[in-house]
Amino acid sequence: MKIVPGAVCEAGTSRVNKTGGWRTFKPVYDYDKCIKCKLCELLCPDSSVKPREDGYFEFDYDYCKGCGICANECPKSAITMVLEEK
C-alpha cells in the first residue's frame, strides 16, 4: 500500500492496519470445553472471532488486540489468555 498525501483514503482502508501487533496476551481455545454458545463471537469488539464450518470458532490474530473480553465472558472457561512471545 502507498500512502496518500493528507492521509486521504476511502472507507474500509483500516483493514491494512493489522492491529494484532498491539496484543500482549492472545486468546486460545480449548475445544473440548467449548459448547458453541457464540458469546465470544457476539462480544468481540474487533470482529476477530470467526465461525468455522464445524460450528466452533477461531481467532483472527491479524486484528485481535488481546483485550480478553472473550476469555472473561466464556461460561465454560474454554478460552485461555496466553502471553504473546515475540
Binding site: 500512502i3 493528507g6 492521509a7 486521504v8 483514503c9 476511502e10 472507507a11 482502508t13 483500516s14 492496519n17
Partner: peptide, 12 residues
C-alpha cells in the same frame, strides 16, 4: 464518493 481526510496513521 466518501473519503476520510487526515486518517489515523500508526507508527508504521
Amino acid at each position: 464518493n466518501p473519503m476520510t481526510f487526515g486518517a489515523f496513521a500508526d507508527p508504521h
